[in-house]
């Protein structure tokens, strides 16, 4: 369960705001809920490692919006931590997280997660394809002393 939940929470967090909102609207879901933590904008300190693998260091912060809520009907609790300052994105992500842990998970899987996943793969593939087109092979010219 944790593994699946990590996967969908990550996907929701990385989703472009406009796409998440549009796909959510298409599900037609408007579940009643109460806030456990109303959406709040804050910062997260991002860390790197010296040399890529060494000691951790603080690289700089990133804006993040978080919230937590409980669905009125089934009591399922949803959390969201999403990049940026869009409170309605965080709300949708938390609602989706709560629903995906409830009996209605399958609908949301089909109507929200599957398209978001496909769009993300397509965005990444497109970018990787452009990068691949700039791949070069450098040829070493024969040096005088080697001849």
């Amino acid at each position: 369960m944790t593994k699946e939940r990590q996967t969908w929470m990550g996907l929701l967090a990385r989703a472009p705001e406009d796409r998440l909102k549009a796909l959510w609207a298409e599900t037609g879901m408007t579940p009643a809920f109460s806030w456990l933590r109303a959406p709040e904008v804050g910062g997260v300190m991002l860390r790197g490692r010296t040399g890529g693998t060494g000691a951790a260091f603080n690289l700089g912060e990133m804006t993040v919006t978080r919230c937590a809520l409980r669905l009125t009907d089934c009591g399922s609790v949803g959390h969201a931590y999403v990049q940026g300052r869009d409170k309605s994105k965080a709300e949708i992500a938390a609602l989706a997280d709560a629903i995906l842990q409830s009996a209605n998970a399958a609908v949301l899987q089909d109507k929200l997660l599957t398209p978001l996943q496909a769009e993300e793969v397509s965005r990444r593939t497109s970018r990787a394809g452009k990068a691949a087109a700039t791949k070069v092979d450098f040829f070493t010219l024969v040096r005088g002393e080697d001849a």
Binding site: L36, R37, A68, R70, G75, V77
Partner: peptide, 9 residues
């Protein structure tokens, strides 16, 4: 347990 999520401001 969900009740530890309550009791905030």
């Amino acid at each position: 347990t969900p009740n530890t999520l309550g009791g905030g401001f």
